[in-house]
């Protein structure tokens, strides 16, 4: 077992892990941060996306030990201290960008990473960026719309949700 220490959502977190323990397992099982989901085993679906040192990372594809010393942000760290939804989360609710909610944490984390890189993405840029996030419920329509709305763009011209 190896001891790992990292900052998760602004708080120090540590635990003993096996060498093979994935970051997502550490978050879900050791820290009980179950908002980060596991939807596949081939790094395709993106339900497990978190931010590690400011970059979007699939937490199923990184060992917990690799995140030793890192700053990690999960979906639980996205809302305001008073529980209020942030701009992206609010846009997902306003535009019905989620149904079953399982892919949603990864979508929100990917969207946040996209908007930090590209504050006003086009529809095509949003769709390309979401290549690594699969949603089975929404047909992506309202997810793309929500992300564009969160970037401050007028989405009124897009067919009504």
């Amino acid at each position: 077992m190896t001891k790992v220490t990292m900052t998760v959502n602004g708080k120090a977190a540590s635990g003993d892990v096996e060498g093979r323990t994935l970051l997502v397992q550490f978050l879900r099982e050791n820290l009980r941060l179950t908002g980060t989901h596991v939807g596949c085993d081939t790094s395709q679906c993106g339900a497990c996306v978190v931010h590690v040192n400011g970059k979007a990372v699939k937490a199923c594809t990184m060992l917990a030990a690799e995140a030793d010393g890192a700053e990690v942000v999960t979906i639980e760290g996205m809302a305001g201290a008073d529980g209020s939804l942030n701009t992206i989360q609010q846009a997902f609710q306003d535009h019905h960008g989620l149904q079953c909610g399982f892919c949603t944490p990864g979508m929100v984390m990917s969207a946040a990473a996209l908007l930090s890189e590209n504050p006003k993405p086009t529809e095509t840029e949003v769709r390309e960026y979401l290549e690594g996030n699969i949603c089975r419920c929404t047909g992506y329509h309202n997810i793309v719309k929500a992300i564009m709305a969160a970037s401050g763009q007028d989405v009124g011209v897009i067919a009504a949700e």
């Binding site: 908002g35 989901h37 609710q93 989620l98």
Partner: peptide
Amino acid sequence: PKRREDVRFLTGAGNYTDD
């Protein structure tokens, strides 16, 4: 109306079976 279930799903507070 906006969906009331969304808040828990958007904040990682959902309660799925694996949780």
